[in-house]
Amino acid sequence: NQASVVANQLIPINTALTLVMMRSEVVTPVGIPAEDIPRLVSMQVSRAVPLGTTLMPDMVKGYA
């Protein structure tokens, strides 16, 4: 089972991601792979992401 990136806190719209905002977790459906966490740092979210939400490619500007 592949771990995905999950929000560790509420991430407001247009916030630049930092390591403390993200954790890896095995979830369904699968989201952005956990190994991409270093690449996500400083990228902005395109919408508010609630705590515990799996990050999907369309939620991060410039990821897809």
Rank of each mutant, 00 (worst) to 15 (best):
S4D: 00
V27H: 05
E25N: 07
N14Y: 08
S46V: 12
P57W: 09
I37V: 09
E25V: 09
L40W: 01
V41F: 07
Q2R: 10
N1Y: 14
P57T: 07
M43L: 11
V45S: 08
T54F: 03
S24C: 04
A48P: 11
L19T: 14
P29C: 04
I11K: 00
G31L: 02
N14D: 14
T18H: 05
P12F: 06
N1L: 09
N14G: 14
A48S: 14
L17M: 12
A48D: 15
I37E: 03
S24T: 14
A7L: 03
V41H: 04
Q44D: 05
V20N: 14
K61W: 13
I32A: 01
Y63N: 04
V6G: 01
N8Y: 04
M22D: 01
V27G: 03
M43W: 14
M56A: 06
M22G: 00
A34K: 08
V27M: 08
L19R: 10
K61H: 15
M22H: 00
A48V: 14
S4N: 01
E35H: 14
T28R: 07
R39V: 09
T28Y: 14
G52S: 08
N8Q: 13
T28V: 12
R39L: 13
V41N: 04
P12R: 09
T54V: 08
K61M: 14
T28N: 12
P50G: 08
S4K: 02
P50V: 06
V26R: 11
I13P: 10
I11A: 00
P29R: 05
E35W: 12
V20W: 08
Q9S: 08
I32R: 00
T15Y: 07
E35G: 13
V20Q: 10
D58L: 06
V30K: 15
L55G: 00
P38M: 14
V5R: 01
V30A: 14
M59D: 15
M59E: 03
V60H: 00
L17D: 00
E35T: 14
A64W: 06
V6S: 03
I37W: 03
K61S: 10
R23N: 07
L40I: 06
M22I: 11
R47A: 08
L17P: 02
M43P: 00
A34C: 05
R23M: 06
T28Q: 09
T15V: 10
V5D: 01
P12G: 09
E35P: 09
L10W: 12
V45G: 01
Q9V: 11
P29A: 05
R23P: 02
R23W: 04
P29I: 05
M56K: 07
A7H: 02
M21S: 05
I11C: 03
T15L: 05
A34M: 08
V20T: 08
L51C: 04
V5C: 04
V49Q: 02
L19V: 13
E35D: 09
K61G: 07
L40Q: 00
M59T: 08
S42L: 08
V27K: 06
V30S: 13
K61Q: 12
I32H: 01
T18S: 12
T54N: 02
P50A: 10
A7C: 03
S42C: 04
Q9L: 07
V60W: 00
S24L: 06
A34E: 08
M21R: 03
Y63R: 03
D36L: 15
Q9K: 12
L17W: 02
A48E: 13
S4Y: 03
A3G: 13
G62K: 07
L55Y: 01
V41R: 06
R47D: 06
L10S: 13
T18I: 05
Q9A: 12
M56G: 05
I13Y: 07
A64C: 04
P50Y: 09
P57M: 09
M56D: 05
A3L: 15
M21I: 03
M43A: 07
S24F: 07
M43E: 04
D36C: 05
I13A: 14
L19M: 09
V49R: 03
G52R: 04
P33S: 14
G62T: 06
D36G: 07
N14E: 10
L17H: 00
G52N: 12
V27W: 03
V20F: 12
L40D: 01
V5I: 13
V27D: 02
N1M: 15
M43R: 11
V26M: 14
A3N: 10
A16G: 09
R23K: 09
Q2N: 12
P12K: 07
A7G: 03
N8M: 07
A64F: 09
L19Q: 10
P38L: 11
V30W: 11
S24D: 09
I13L: 14
E35N: 13
I32L: 08
S42G: 15
P38N: 13
S42W: 07
L55C: 02
N14H: 12
M59C: 04
Q2V: 10
A16V: 10
L51T: 13
V26I: 14
A34Q: 06
V49D: 02
G31H: 01
M22N: 00
A64L: 14
L51W: 13
T18N: 06
A34V: 08
L19D: 11
L17A: 00
R39P: 02
Q44V: 10
A16I: 11
A16N: 10
M59G: 03
M59Y: 10
Q44L: 12
R47I: 15
V60G: 01
D36V: 07
M22L: 08
Q9T: 12
V45Q: 00
A34W: 10
T54C: 03
L19P: 13
A3H: 15
A7D: 02
P38K: 12
I13F: 08
A16E: 07
G31A: 03
L51G: 12
V60C: 02
A16T: 08
V45A: 06
P57D: 07
I32K: 00
I37Y: 03
P12T: 11
S24W: 06
V27S: 05
N8C: 04
V49E: 02
I37S: 04
A7F: 02
M21D: 06
Q2E: 12
V41A: 08
P33C: 04
V20S: 15
A7K: 01
S46N: 14
D58E: 08
A34H: 13
T54G: 02
N1T: 13
I32M: 03
G52H: 14
T54A: 05
A3W: 13
P29E: 06
L10A: 11
T28C: 06
L17Y: 01
E25K: 13
Q2Y: 15
S4A: 03
P50T: 13
V60N: 01
A16M: 14
V6Q: 04
L10D: 15
V27R: 12
R23C: 04
A34T: 07
S46Y: 08
M43G: 03
P12E: 14
N8I: 09
K61F: 12
P50W: 06
M43D: 03
E35F: 14
L40C: 03
N8D: 13
V49L: 11
